[in-house]
């Protein structure tokens, strides 16, 4: 797990290298200038569409259609947001999105960690066969139709559980967690065993607390996946308004905007106008808000996680 500090090592190396290369040649200066310009352009390309979306979301709808909105709204309004928040399914969408993210993430992370614990017991007789059973699922799956029919016969259509159950034990997360647990000293579990502790006690009291960094990483990825998915809503829960999610509602807005007729559906009233485009901008901001807010805090976890993933089982 030494690779955890790669990022820090990277900056340290840089400082050392900078010291050695204290004599900068003309070629170096040109290179640095071009590189800096490139990075500035790159950053603008990433950020501009996002910031522009925020500006449009706070601008009067009809006025925004005239163009010329860049990073700041011209005619400020919160009408787009009030339209989004008063949409028919909004309450359901927010509730289901939050619930699937919280319940889906907690259950998947816990259950996957438990399987990883079982498979990290060194002398467990069925370690190989059980691992294989799960690893195969990374490469072979039934495909959309057979899976759809099985879930349907299990009663998972128009059912909240379809968001939680199918992705409960991702094999890749299991491998990441198992690798980490294999790296913990055996003596910890052994001495607890001698003191009479059972597997659940060892798992909860010793292994789980020690695995927190990697558990956080796995949980983060699961949470982002849950929050962002819309396809399972469309396939399994299309008929249940109370099981819709924010992403699915946004997707419906998106397809209504593509059917070009829509921008003429301007809604007017005393406080201003909204258009499908401006409403979609507001909906996009609402939908990505949780990720943007949490993003800075979560950064260190996902970088660590990706490095573990790269190290492989």
């Amino acid at each position: 797990m030494a690779d955890f500090n790669l990022k820090e090592k990277a900056s340290a190396n840089k400082i050392v290298r900078g010291g050695i290369m204290s004599r900068r040649t003309k070629g170096d200066m040109i290179f640095d200038t071009i590189n800096t310009i490139f990075m500035v352009i790159f950053t603008i390309i990433i950020l501009y569409p996002l910031l522009n979306m925020v500006a449009v979301s706070f601008n009067d709808g009809l006025d925004a259609l005239k163009g010329g909105i860049y990073l700041w709204p011209r005619i400020f309004t919160t009408k787009n947001y009030s339209t989004v928040l008063s949409m028919k399914n909004m309450g359901n969408a927010v509730r289901t999105s939050v619930m699937r993210t919280v319940i889906g993430t907690l259950s998947a992370t816990f259950v996957t960690a438990l399987l990883a614990y079982i498979l990290s017991r060194k002398d467990f007789l069925f370690k190989k066969s059980l691992s294989l059973l799960y690893v195969v699922t990374m490469y072979v799956n039934g495909g959309l139709i057979p899976v759809f029919l099985v879930y349907k016969s299990l009663g998972l259509t128009n059912n909240f559980l379809v968001y939680v159950l199918p992705g409960m034990v991702p094999a890749f997360s299991m491998l990441v967690l198992r690798t980490y647990m294999n790296g913990l000293p055996d003596s910890l579990a052994e001495s607890a065993m001698i003191d009479g502790a059972g597997h659940f006690t060892i798992f909860f009291r010793i292994i789980l607390p020690l695995c927190m960094p990697v558990i956080a990483t796995v949980a983060l990825f699961t949470a982002v996946g849950q929050w962002n998915s819309w396809f399972d809503v469309m396939i399994y829960n299309r008929m249940s308004d109370n099981l819709t999610t924010l992403q699915y509602e946004l997707m419906k807005l998106l397809s209504s905007v593509t059917n070009q007729k829509s921008n003429s559906e301007v809604m007017k009233n005393a406080t201003g106008t909204v258009t499908p485009t401006s409403v979609r901008a507001a909906a996009t901001v609402v939908t990505s808000l949780p990720i943007i807010i949490l993003y800075p805090f979560l950064q260190r976890y996902f970088v660590a996680g990706l490095t573990i993933g790269g190290v492989k089982e």
Binding site: T43, N228, S288, I291
Partner: peptide, 30 residues
Amino acid sequence: NELRGVIGKKFVQTISYLPHFLSMVILTGI
């Protein structure tokens, strides 16, 4: 890696990862 200045580097890095966390629906809208 060649970019000078630790702060600028961290900043560009942070910005560059951000879109990975946005959904395909949002990407399509963009």
